[in-house]
Write a protein that binds this DNA or RNA. Structure first.
Lengths: 156, 156
DNA sequence: TATTGTTATACTCTATAACTATA
DNA sequence: TATAGTTATAGAGTATAACAATA
C-alpha cells in the first residue's frame, strides 16, 4: 500500500534511550527554523550556504572544495557550484594546491572578508530579534545547547 | 561595491544582549542540520515538510490550508501544493468548511495515520543515532533546549 | 585503480504574481 | 473591499551520473 520500508531496530549503545518526543521536537524545530533562515535574505546578499562557506574560509583560511563539502555536508558537485558563484562575485579565489595537482585551494579575498562581515551582521540581526523575544529560561537553555547542536549537526 | 545593505541597529528590549557567537552557532548548526534532515529520505517517503504537515494533521485534527501555512511558516501557494501531493497519495482528504465556503478543511485519512507513524519512525531513527553519539552533557543540554528551540522556530 | 574535482542534467522546494470565489 | 485558496510561473538549492585529470 505504500513504498516506505518498515523502520529497522536502531542499534544503540549503552545509556538511556533519548526521548522520542525530544528528538521529534528538535527535528520539527530545526526544519522550520532552517527554512526560515534560508529564505530570509536581503537584496544583493548571497545564499545561506554560500555565506556559511565564505564564513568558514574567513575563519579557517584556505581549504579545498573537498574540505568545504565535507564541512558543510553537501555533495562535491554542489560545492563546485557554490564556489563558482562566490568566485564570480569576487569573494573567493582559487590557487593550485602546492603538493597535489588534483586539488585546488579556495581562499577568501579582501572583498570576501568585508562582505562576510556585513552579511553575517544582517543575518544575525533577524535571529537575534527572535531570540530576544523568548523567555529568559528559554534563552539560557538555548545558549547552553548551541555548541551541542553544532556538534550534532556536524557528526559524520 | 556590493548590493548588500548595511545592517540597521537592532531594536532591543531590556536584558543582556545575546552573545552574537551563540546566535551564529545556532544559525550555522540549524542550517546544516536542516539540510541533512531534509535530504535524508527513504525510498517512497514523502518530503520533510509534507511529513510535518501530515504529522500536524494527525495531532491536531482537521485544519484549513491557511492554518497549516501559518503553522509551518510557508506561503499559502506552497501549502496548496503540499496538500495536493498528500491528497494524491491518499494521505489526506478535503471537505468543505461548515461555516465559510471560501475555506476548506484538510483531514488525515486512516492511511495517512499509518503512513505518518512509519515515516516518523524512520526519520527519527537517523537523528536518534546521531544524538546517541553525543556526550551525556550535550544530550542533556539539547533535551532541555528542545522546547525552547521549537518556540524560537514558531515565533511570528 | 583510486581520488579530486567539474560538467551535464534533472528534480524538489519554495516563492511571488495573478486569478477565482466567497464574505 | 477584504479574505481564502488555487493556478501559473520562475528561481534557487541540491542531488546523481558521467567525465577529466592526477596520484
Amino acid at each position: 500500500m505504500s513504498g516506505l520500508p518498515a523502520p529497522t531496530a536502531p542499534v544503540r549503545a549503552a545509556g538511556p534511550a533519548p526521548n522520542p518526543d525530544t528528538i521529534n521536537t528538535l527535528r520539527a524545530a530545526v526544519l522550520v527554523l532552517g527554512r526560515r533562515l534560508r529564505y530570509q535574505t536581503a537584496d544583493g546578499d548571497i545564499s545561506a550556504t554560500e555565506g556559511a562557506v565564505l564564513g568558514r574560509l574567513c575563519r579557517e583560511g584556505a581549504l579545498t572544495p573537498g574540505d568545504l563539502a565535507r564541512g558543510e555536508h553537501v555533495q562535491p558537485p554542489s560545492m563546485s557550484r557554490i564556489i563558482e558563484r562566490l568566485e564570480q562575485r569576487g569573494l573567493v579565489t582559487r590557487r593550485p594546491h602546492p603538493e597535489d595537482r588534483r586539488q585546488v585551494l579556495i581562499e577568501r579575498t579582501p572583498e570576501g572578508v568585508a562582505f562576510a562581515e556585513r552579511s553575517t551582521a544582517v543575518r544575525t540581526e533577524w535571529l537575534t530579534r527572535q531570540f530576544d523575544r523568548l523567555s529568559p529560561p528559554d534563552q539560557q537553555a538555548l545558549t547552553r545547547a548551541a555548541d551541542a547542536l553544532r556538534r550534532l549537526s556536524t557528526l559524520s
